[in-house]
Amino acid sequence: MNEPAFDAEALIEAMAPLLGLFVGEASRAPVKTHLEIAARYAALLEQTALGDHEEPAPVFTP
């Protein structure tokens, strides 16, 4: 299994045009910082074993 490698710069390059977002020069460093914080938090959650049958919290009621 490949270990995920998080590259915020590459994510910005790929996702900004896909989303139709412009990331100006002044925004680049803060957006990168926020992505890296998010990646750290996601990695923390990845370490938690949650079963396939764990229901996500929002449950739709028809």
Binding site: L11, I12, M15, A16, L19, L21, V23, S27, V31, H34, L35, A38, A42, L45, E46, T48, L50, E54, E55, P56, A57, P58
Partner: peptide, 16 residues
Amino acid sequence: IAGAMLPGGWVVKAQK
């Protein structure tokens, strides 16, 4: 902007 770029699986795991 950073939030718009995050993988969907991360937020589903967060909700689980």
